[in-house]
Design a protein around this nucleic acid. Sequence first.
DNA 1: AGTGCAACCGACCGATCGGTCGGTCACCAT
DNA 2: ATGGTGACCGACCGATCGGTCGGTTGCACT
Lengths: 213, 213
Amino acid sequence: MPASTAASAEHTSRDKILDAAEALFAKRGYAAVGLRELAELVGLGKSSLFHHFRNKAQLYAAVTARILVSIEARLVRSLATGGDPVVRLERWLDDLIDLLTENPTYARVLLRSLFEDDDLPGDLPEEIEGHRAIADMMAAVGGLLREGMGAGLFRAVHVNHFLLTLVGIIVFPFASGEFGAEVLGKDLFDATEVRRRKREVRALLRSGLVASR
Amino acid sequence: MPASTAASAEHTSRDKILDAAEALFAKRGYAAVGLRELAELVGLGKSSLFHHFRNKAQLYAAVTARILVSIEARLVRSLATGGDPVVRLERWLDDLIDLLTENPTYARVLLRSLFEDDDLPGDLPEEIEGHRAIADMMAAVGGLLREGMGAGLFRAVHVNHFLLTLVGIIVFPFASGEFGAEVLGKDLFDATEVRRRKREVRALLRSGLVASR
DNA sequence: AGTGCAACCGACCGATCGGTCGGTCACCAT
DNA sequence: ATGGTGACCGACCGATCGGTCGGTTGCACT
């Protein structure tokens, strides 16, 4: 099965290119991926890549856009579901962790796109489609925090700083590769370790964010 | 003044190369940095780089080793100073934030070296000198956490997961570049924003880690 | 005066880079 | 049958990559 998000086991060449490119970009970053290598991995000639994507930059944009949009789609749905702010925030975090662990490439691509999309070769299409999606989602979570604070459920935090904190807590570990595994002594993507991580994040927020009754 | 750690305003060519390479590697990563560009930035011919470093990989290793060792040196000293675990942990976090903000390239180089040093071109010297230093420091902080838990000062946390959490909280924001600035609405490296970040991190740990008396 | 050496340079190398071009092939509509 | 088209390919291009080589300075030491 492909590393794709959902069920659609489409095996069109375009999707196979995107899947392979996603894995390579996640592991090594934009500049270190060669198109010959990618083509060979997919089982196509290098020229064929250009039949599906105008150039390398747009291929990269397509890869990240697919991921960012899929993240936003799933998590906005999660945020929109009912419950008080505590429940909704915890569900959001749970769903985000699920998403990142079900698709092990996501965290790295996401992190890379968050902190190194600036200064890529110049021919990127404006900004990567999907950055807006992520920004919107962050804004929604920010609103959730404010709502919880207003209701007296959360202690007073600086919302924007707390958003950065949340992203750092959730995304970094799943992108940290060998370092994370070394610190942890185990593979972070193991089911039991994922469960443990969820528990720890929840516990931290329960005591560190949720107002004591 | 150079982006170097401390006072030593040495202006040897070797140091200038390291400084410039540090900036470039931090901004764009290993693969995207060309040696011609680096040489021109320093004001040398490209061949001269090879007089000071055997090849690109070793130059990269020297850059990151310099940073990792300097981080470890300063923070181990910070950890060794007295005080109860709460005080020592907070001082460690403060000093780490100081270090990362005084040297804006550090967070990115550190993050990169944590999650993408795997699979670089093969001629790296074993492992990068300094990875051990960081691992040792993480172990020391782990011991600090355990000590605090044993003394009943900290609530019960999964130490290794908490270490990952701490790194994510501290390092990621200062490496997040444009994304962080967009979320925050301000430049994270501004003095007032740094102060705010310190305050927020402290507050999170006070309520989220320190046991409620 | 002469020797050695660190620092530096321009010219060059093979390899690889992203990207182009002309063409083949299978399939589908008319 | 025939024209069109989407998918694909090998050969090739200029540019750039990391790295080498031979040589020239200038300073230190004797």
